[in-house]
Amino acid sequence: MLRRLCDPRKIRRLWVDAICIDQANIRERNHQVRSMAAIFCEAQRVVVYLGEPEPVIDRLAEYSPKTREGIS
Rank of each mutant, 00 (worst) to 15 (best):
M1H: 08
M1D: 04
L2I: 14
L2G: 07
R3M: 12
R4N: 09
R4D: 10
R4L: 14
R4T: 13
L5C: 05
L5I: 02
P8G: 01
P8I: 11
R9P: 00
K10C: 13
I11M: 11
R12S: 14
R13L: 14
R13D: 03
L14H: 13
W15A: 00
V16E: 01
A18T: 14
A18D: 04
I19G: 02
I19D: 07
C20N: 13
C20D: 14
I21W: 00
I21D: 00
D22A: 15
Q23W: 04
N25G: 04
I26Y: 05
I26M: 12
R27F: 10
R27L: 12
R27W: 07
R29Y: 01
N30L: 12
H31N: 13
H31E: 15
Q32N: 11
V33C: 07
V33W: 07
V33F: 05
V33E: 07
V33R: 10
R34A: 13
M36I: 10
A37V: 14
A38P: 00
I39A: 05
C41I: 04
C41L: 10
C41K: 14
E42V: 00
A43Y: 04
A43I: 03
A43W: 02
A43F: 03
A43C: 08
Q44N: 08
Q44A: 08
V46Y: 02
V46I: 11
V46K: 07
V48A: 12
V48N: 04
V48L: 09
V48F: 06
V48G: 04
Y49L: 01
L50Y: 07
L50D: 03
G51K: 05
G51M: 02
G51F: 01
E52N: 07
E52T: 09
E52H: 04
P53A: 06
P53G: 02
P53E: 08
P53S: 09
P53R: 07
E54I: 01
P55F: 00
P55I: 01
V56W: 12
I57L: 06
I57Y: 06
I57R: 10
R59D: 05
R59V: 05
R59Q: 07
R59E: 11
R59W: 05
L60H: 09
L60Q: 09
L60R: 09
A61R: 07
A61K: 02
A61P: 00
A61D: 01
E62W: 09
E62S: 11
E62D: 08
E62I: 05
Y63S: 10
Y63N: 11
S64K: 06
P65L: 06
P65H: 03
P65A: 04
K66W: 13
T67F: 09
T67H: 10
T67A: 10
R68F: 05
E69H: 12
S72Q: 15
S72D: 11
